[in-house]
């Protein structure tokens, strides 16, 4: 199966500014998280998205507010770009009652159903069947919406990945699968875990149109995502993007990161999504230094506000421990007519 020819997009000044702002927001947010983790404000597992920003930013451009998103534990960036307020995301990481999941989930379990953001799944591969089901519901209800399912390349080894691709293709469901292939699943390099390391070929084996994307280039990601989402929305069945990317930081704050060559990490950093796009907007005179400084100032304020909000927010009272385990029953229906 061959991917359609890539087509050029014209990136307006306004759009370039927005793409850069979003990537910088994610980058600075993650950097703040590192400090807050050191200060023990954020606990548990913390998985950073530094280096991979172009993927969330690019893909989100292609989605409408009606579309759904299913992500993993490395989802701060997706949540922020989807529009979950940074205050609510930060409060969630602090475990506060004002968090987007009431503090119950933490970093790995960001949810906001009002924005059709269905988590924050920390079981590798666990989000794929869920996405297939959301898309099935849309198809059965006659709604032309896309469910965008984001996961790492490590998930491709799980049975749930294969079962989900088959189901989505078999039933022509409106799922946009986005594999963020950062080459490592914890300490395991993809060559050491996949007999066929080209993940997109797995999708093709199920008859799904799949495309490789430079996940370090935000414009490339946006173009590919728009094209794929359009096809999905039109009822063509699922599409699959394999985005080549890299995480600059360790897997989580617990990872001593001893399994990769420092030179390899450095080489990828040279191609970093933020530096590269910044260079491009400056070289092409699309934006000027002052524009970028203004973005940095604005983002710094946004993050300072988020941290202040999270700090000031209350914890949930212990008496509420058992809430939200079951949904309340709707009002009892009348007795069946005899």
């Amino acid at each position: 199966m061959t991917a359609p020819e890539p087509h050029k997009v014209r990136v307006t000044r306004e759009h370039a500014r927005e793409l850069l702002r979003q990537m910088i927001l994610v980058r600075r947010f993650e950097e703040a998280c590192i400090e807050l983790y050191g200060a023990q404000k954020i606990r548990g597992f913390l998985h950073l998205y530094i280096g991979e920003e172009a993927n969330a930013v690019g893909v989100m451009q292609a989605l409408t507010p009606d579309d759904a998103i299913v992500a993993t534990y490395r989802e701060h960036g997706h949540a922020l770009i989807r529009g979950i307020p940074p205050t609510a995301v930060m409060a969630e990481m602090f475990g506060k009652a004002t968090g987007c999941s009431r503090g119950r989930g933490g970093s790995m379990h960001l949810f906001d159903v009002s924005r059709r953001f269905y988590g924050g799944n920390a079981i590798v591969g666990g989000g794929l069947p869920l996405a297939v089901g959301l898309a099935l519901a849309d198809k059965l209800r006659g709604l032309a919406r896309v469910t965008c399912c984001i996961f790492g390349e490590g998930a491709a080894a799980e049975g749930e990945f294969h079962e989900s691709l088959n189901l989505a293709a078999l039933w022509k469901l409106p799922v946009l699968f986005v594999c963020e292939n950062n080459r490592y699943a914890m300490g395991t390099a993809i060559e050491r875990s996949e007999s066929v390391p080209d993940i997109r070929r797995h999708a093709e084996a199920y008859g799904i149109v799949a495309e490789e994307v430079d996940g370090m280039n935000v414009v490339d990601v946006e173009v590919a995502a728009r094209r794929a989402a359009e096809a999905v929305r039109a009822g063509d069945g699922p599409r699959f993007l394999e985005n080549h990317t890299y995480r600059f930081r360790a897997h989580s704050m617990f990872d001593p990161d001893l399994y990769r060559d420092k030179a390899e990490v450095e080489a990828w950093k040279q191609r970093g999504p933020v530096v590269r796009f910044t260079q491009w907007v400056l070289d092409t005179n699309t934006l000027h230094r002052a524009d970028i400084d203004a973005i940095e100032t604005e983002v710094a304020q946004t993050i300072a506000d988020a941290v202040a909000f999270a700090e000031a927010s209350p914890l949930e009272p212990v008496e509420d421990l058992l809430r939200d385990v079951y949904a309340p029953r709707p009002a009892a229906p009348g007795a069946p007519a005899s």
Partner: peptide
């Protein structure tokens, strides 16, 4: 005991 939430 390590604040890893409901899936860990």
């Amino acid at each position: 005991g390590r604040q890893l939430a409901a899936q860990h």
